[in-house]
Simulated scan of single mutants.
Amino acid sequence: MTVPKFGLGTFRLKDDVVRRVVADALELGYRAIDTAQGYDNEGEIGEVLAASGVPRADVYLTTKIKPANYRRDALLDSLRVSLEKLRVEQVDLTLIHWPVPNGEVRPEEYLSALAEAREQGLTREIGVSNFNVAGLRRAREILGVVPLATNQVEIHPYLQNRRLVEFARGEGLHLTSYMTLAVGKVMDDPVLRDIAGAHGANPAQVALAWALAQGFSVIPSSTKRENLAGNFRAQDLQLTTEDMDRIAALDVGEAARIASPESARPVWD
């Protein structure tokens, strides 16, 4: 696995907010930044990275191709535009953002184009996001020997995606958890608050440590520097087996899913 275990998510962060957050994160020690064409913040992130003084080789940079750019030529051209905005010659990881199972562009085209982007050196690694088990199986058939670096999916204490996790582990596929904090819901959870109290931590750190303990990468976000610092320290939190079991019991499945756009989502496992 080459995908860093801990990074900064930038969904919904724009303009001066994303500039400040990325600058704070880099100062705090973050060395992985996750963005997407659809986030409309690649340019601002590129500005901050260029001005930060942090060597390019030290930052793992991920972007995602938005569905409007899935046709072969559009995908390759749009990724070149992303590189220009990010002010880099190559990103470390490029993902297909959503599978769009009923879209005009089939997986054979956009996944083959993504592999071509890797061959051309536009991206060092490739992966997918929001793919279900069937989608992952098909992706591997299409890509053949070209490896998938990760599948980035919504995983948090209330949506634990166990069938997908089991399949990924069996196939040696890495998972990246997004929305690990369930858009802040974890902060008021009595179980997570109790576990946090026993460790001198906070519930966000507990949720992140829970995901990390399962081998997932995480990409939490915050607009507050103190929260960015606190999230980063979750890497040092070791949960007990009892803690993990208590969090496992919080899973309620699909009822807790947050991200599920009708036009792009697969049939969830």
Rank of each mutant, 00 (worst) to 15 (best):
E84L: 12
A204C: 11
L237W: 07
Y178E: 06
S222Q: 09
A74R: 00
Q214D: 09
G43T: 12
F131R: 01
R20C: 02
V3D: 02
L49V: 12
K85A: 12
Y39W: 07
T123A: 12
G9A: 07
D40K: 05
R246L: 15
Y70C: 00
I126P: 02
L79I: 03
A207P: 04
G170R: 10
K5W: 12
L237F: 08
A198H: 14
T10M: 09
Q235E: 13
V183Y: 04
A256N: 08
M1H: 11
E116Y: 07
I126K: 03
F232M: 13
R162M: 03
R124H: 14
P157N: 11
E44I: 11
G7S: 13
A117Y: 09
Q90P: 02
Q238F: 11
L148T: 03
S78R: 01
F11Y: 15
V81C: 10
Y30D: 02
R163H: 13
L208R: 01
T241S: 15
M187H: 14
G144T: 13
K14N: 09
V59C: 11
E109W: 00
P261E: 00
E141F: 11
Y110T: 09
A113L: 08
D236W: 05
A182N: 06
G103D: 03
Y39S: 02
S260A: 14
A115H: 06
R12I: 02
A198N: 15
Y60D: 02
V153T: 01
G215V: 14
L49C: 12
D243Q: 14
Y39N: 01
T241M: 13
T176E: 06
V105Q: 05
R193Y: 02
A23H: 12
R56N: 11
V22T: 15
G7D: 11
N69I: 00
V22M: 13
L250H: 11
P157E: 10
T241W: 06
E154V: 01
Q235W: 02
D269K: 01
M244E: 07
I142Q: 09
A249G: 05
S221V: 10
E226Q: 15
D188Q: 15
A229Q: 10
V146W: 02
E108H: 00
N130P: 06
S82Q: 07
A211L: 09
R12C: 00
V252R: 15
V59M: 12
T63R: 03
G53W: 12
G215T: 11
E166W: 03
E254M: 08
D34P: 08
T94Y: 03
L239M: 14
V21P: 04
D73I: 04
Y30T: 05
S221C: 12
D77M: 08
K85W: 09
V252F: 08
E262R: 03
E44D: 15
F216N: 03
K64E: 04
V191D: 02
P99Y: 01
S112Y: 02
N151W: 03
L111N: 06
N161S: 13
L83M: 05
V81I: 13
L208E: 04
N151E: 07
P203A: 13
R137N: 05
M187T: 14
R169I: 01
H156I: 10
Y178Q: 06
A25H: 04
R56C: 07
D236T: 10
E89I: 01
D189G: 09
